[in-house]
Design a binder for these strands. Structure first.
Lengths: 117, 117
DNA sequence: ACCTCACCTGAATGATTGTTCAGATGTTTA
DNA sequence: TAAACATCTGAACAATCATTCAGGTGAGGT
């Protein structure tokens, strides 16, 4: 790595140190990246946006994004383990909903930014 | 696809139709997914968080995330084409900053959600 | 003009990710 | 209990992404 060259010339150590101090803790960064990763797919955004409006079952969601129930199930598992959605079984069917409305807020914020860009 | 089976049994067409209506337009969804994709990497989060505090050059940023200037340059290009950061040349060096503070807001919102989850 | 340095780019490799398919689980109804 | 159905899971394949390396650009100093 050419770090040695760079270190002595253009890197402003003070500036870097200052900024490093301000960085969020490692687990926080990883957690946030994980959440954003879940939001980084149009189909998952559709699912989440739909669930922000009302509770839906896997079958409805599959219809919504025009794919197989299996594929949706995989996506939902990801969203579930990331704590973005929660589910509730009613007979044969499983109904999903947003876990809380932080998610909805993030979603809206992202869409708003997309509108303006 | 087993849509035909499913359609006649468990899919609530009305519910799906209602939710489909509420979905954001296609380009908006794609745009938002694109933005979230940029935020879905710990190193890029570090870069953005740092740039939210102050303007930094490529070399500083490489030092910050402990990687090569080339790798950072690639990342910065992604962030630049996604309009999340902007840059300014001063002599040999190029200084980067956040393009606007929507980005900062998204970042904070994501981190806050990570804290609570 | 030349050399050095900060930064950028394109192509290739290696790692992650998404989807599909086949089969498993658990629930209802007959 | 057996059959039908909604959903879940694991493994394999395809696509997508990040990093590296080698070379290229443009600014400054000598």
């Amino acid at each position: 790595m050419e770090k040695d060259i760079c270190l002595t010339t253009c890197v402003d150590q003070q500036r870097v140190a200052r900024v490093v101090q301000g960085l969020p803790a490692e687990p926080l960064l990883l957690g946030a990246a994980e959440i954003f990763k879940m939001l980084a797919d149009p189909n998952r955004l559709r699912l989440l946006h739909a669930l922000a409006q009302e509770e839906l079952c896997v079958c409805d969601l599959a219809e919504l994004v025009e794919t197989s129930a299996s594929a949706v199930s995989h996506q939902l598992r990801l969203l579930r383990t990331a704590r973005l959605v929660a589910c509730r079984r009613e007979g044969k069917m499983v109904y999903y909903r947003l876990d809380d409305d932080h998610v909805g807020r993030l979603l809206r914020e992202g869409l708003r930014h997309a509108e303006e860009g």
